[in-house]
Amino acid sequence: MIERRPFGRTGHHSTCTIFGAAALGRVTQAEADHTLELLLAADVNHIDTANSYGESERRLGPWTGRYRDRFFLATKTEERTYAKAKEHLHRSLDLLHTDHVDLWQMHCLVQPDQWEQAMGPGGALEAFIEAKEQGLARFIGVTGHYTVAGWMHKRSLERYDFDSVLLPYNYAMMQNPTYRADFEALVQLCQARNVAVQTIKSCTRGPWPGDEHSAATWYEPFSEQAAIDTAVHWVLRRPGIFLNTPGDIHLLPKVLDAARRLTPGPQSELDPAMEALAPTPLFT
C-alpha cells in the first residue's frame, strides 16, 4: 500500500506518489489505458496533468470521466492573461470529461515578466480566483522549474494564498546552497500556512549525455530498480511532501513499486547511497 498524506488544507489524503501525467503526452490510447489500470491497481488517487502536456488530457478523459470520484484531478496552464487562461481551463474541462478540477495551477511561473503579467490587472490570477469562486477549480496552485523556483514560489505566496506549490527536489539539487536555502524557506512558509508541497525530478540522473534517449523524459532518469528505490525513498522520507512521478510510462511501475516499499527512517541515512549514484543537477 502506498502511503497517503494530507494534501495541504484541501482535506484530501493523496497518495505520496502523484501520477505525473506528462507521461501520457505522446502515447497511444491503448498505452494510456494500461497505465491508468496500473494506477487503479496501485490505488493511486491523485493525477497531475497540464494543457501543455501533448495528448495527456485527451488520453485521461475517458478514464477521469468514468472514475472521477477515484482521483484528485489537477491540471495547469501556462497562459498569463485572464482571457487565455480562462479559455484553457474550459478546454481542459472538456478534454478531461469533467465539470471541475480539484486543483488548477499556474504552470512554470518563474520568469519575472510573466509573473508580473499573471499577477497584475487582467492577468491569469483573476481567472484562477474566478474559477475557484465558481467551483470550476476547487483549489489553485503554482508550479515552477529551475533554481529560482523556490524563491519565486515564496513571492507568489506573498501575493496570493495559493493552496499548493510544485518544484524540483532531489539530492543533486539540494547540494546547491542557494536552492537549498530557498527550498527550505518555502517549505517553512508552506507548513505555516498548510500549503501542499509537490516535488518533481526525483529520479533524475542528470542531463542526457548525448543525442540518444532511452526514455521519454527530457533528462536522463535512473532506470535500475535499486537506484529508483534510493531516489524515491530519499524524497519520500521527508515528511509532508509529495513526489510527482517521472514523465515516462515505463518508469511508472518501478516508481510505484519503490513507493510501496518505503520504510521509515531519517532521510540523511540515504545520503551516502545517493552520493554513490553520482547524480548531477539539471539546473544550475
Rank of each mutant, 00 (worst) to 15 (best):
C203K: 01
T17A: 15
A83K: 15
A258F: 12
Q225W: 15
A32N: 01
A227I: 04
P264L: 11
A231C: 05
S56P: 09
P253Y: 05
M152K: 09
G25L: 03
K254L: 13
R138P: 00
P264V: 09
H153C: 05
N176H: 15
G240N: 14
M152N: 01
R58V: 10
D161G: 10
M152R: 11
D211L: 06
I241A: 08
R9K: 15
P168L: 09
V255C: 07
A149L: 05
L39H: 02
M1Q: 13
A196Q: 02
H153S: 12
H153N: 12
L166V: 00
T28D: 04
T143K: 01
H97C: 10
D271H: 10
T28E: 04
H153I: 03
A185I: 04
N51P: 02
T230S: 13
D229T: 13
Q29W: 02
W234G: 04
P272A: 14
R68N: 07
L243I: 03
L270W: 14
H100N: 07
A181R: 15
M119T: 12
T77Q: 08
F242Q: 06
T178Q: 15
Y169K: 10
N170D: 07
E116S: 06
Y160R: 02
D94N: 11
T147K: 12
L270R: 14
A231K: 02
G8A: 11
G54I: 07
V142D: 08
A196P: 00
A273M: 08
T35V: 09
